[in-house]
Simulated scan of single mutants.
Amino acid sequence: MTHAVAIRPIAFVPGPQSEHGNAIRLGGGMGYASRFAVILRDGGAVTERWLAAPDSIAEVLGQLPDAVGAEAEEQWANLTLAHPPLQLGARTIRLDQPQVMGILNVTPDSFSDGGEFLDNPEVARDHAAAMLEAGAALIDIGGESTRPGAEQLWEGDEITRVLPAVEACAAMGAAISIDTRKAAVMEAALDAGAHMVNDVSGLAYDPRSAEVVAARGCPVVLMHAPGAAGEDLHDGGDYDNVVFAVFDALKARRDAAIAAGIGRAQILLDPGIGFGKSLADNLALINALPLFHALGHPLLLGASRKRMIGALSNEAPVEKRLGGSLMLALAGMNAGVQMLRVHDVAETAQARNIWRGLRDAALTDFADLPG
């Protein structure tokens, strides 16, 4: 039997006072966890499970086999890790609260807004400006559709699509992420003013991509997709336990990135909602989001307007999935996710602001209690 361990937060409170201090600040954000499942597993199978609180975690970790003891201690430390801000050009993006990443697709066939901004640089620029004004911390620009069945795009065509949008956003002083899995596109976009790479393949598709990111010293988002190394990102989505499979895969891609020379503090992780995953898989991952803080990196959630919303809402078309998108964003905020990648920036930013107001107020809710 090959043992592995996972520490999953399972109970949450708005502030530590409600537990008389017996809670941890999750991922350096605005949420607190007070109870944890310490899971001993063999691959996707759970072999033993203990419950613990911050004041009893040491005793529980002491019961683990020696082979996983160090890993468990690291995960526990990671759960409380406060992440430094992202420095994207002249913009500093703090990760102690949820931030909104606005999506700008310059493609003819993306599932949500395909074709709307392709060959319309002024419209794309105006949309980016509106997202920034509405509260987006950065703009994520992509030129290749990653929907199921999308055709592979030559890197030269992808560069032609994204550069005008990158240059326009750079001219207005925006923080920019380039959504691509190709090293040549990364290089061209970073040269044109982009500051961060968002790779849906987790740097597994293009053998040169990790080298490019390491050489530029820029932040990178590593996303999980079962077919990351091949042409079809959605291929191979068959899991014994989707949560542990994605957790292990992201850990492996993180380790490969660090081995390639990418700084640990420059890495964000994304579980890849909708990529080679069933509705049940996606729901399991959303519910398990707090577990991924145990990997020790800021988390990005990209669930905006995705198919799972339609599946749970009488097949609502993409343009009528705002309510579901906001619900998933709220789930991410409650889980301590640091970055929300969304189409509907104004609505998400407003929801985030109200959520933050509630969290700020909660820190004084129990101020009059003794002790």
Rank of each mutant, 00 (worst) to 15 (best):
D42P: 03
L26N: 01
L118E: 12
D96P: 15
H195T: 09
Q266Y: 12
N287L: 08
I176T: 02
G28V: 04
G135C: 08
I24D: 04
S177N: 14
I262A: 02
M339C: 12
R161Y: 13
I139G: 09
V220L: 06
W355P: 01
E231Y: 02
V337T: 08
V246W: 02
A252W: 02
H83W: 12
A23G: 11
A335K: 10
V60F: 01
A214S: 05
A184G: 12
A52N: 06
F111I: 14
T146V: 06
E48F: 04
E319T: 13
A284I: 13
A349D: 05
V60W: 03
L233E: 01
S313Y: 05
D191V: 11
M333W: 07
L118A: 10
H83M: 09
P207E: 02
L301F: 09
S209P: 09
Y32G: 08
S56M: 03
S278F: 13
D119A: 14
D270Q: 08
C218Q: 01
W50R: 00
A288H: 07
L190C: 02
V345N: 03
A362W: 14
A174S: 09
V68A: 03
P219C: 01
L363S: 13
S313G: 05
A37Q: 01
D344H: 02
Q152L: 09
E122P: 14
G27E: 09
R305G: 00
E158L: 05
R264T: 15
D365R: 15
L203C: 13
E155G: 13
W50E: 03
L322S: 11
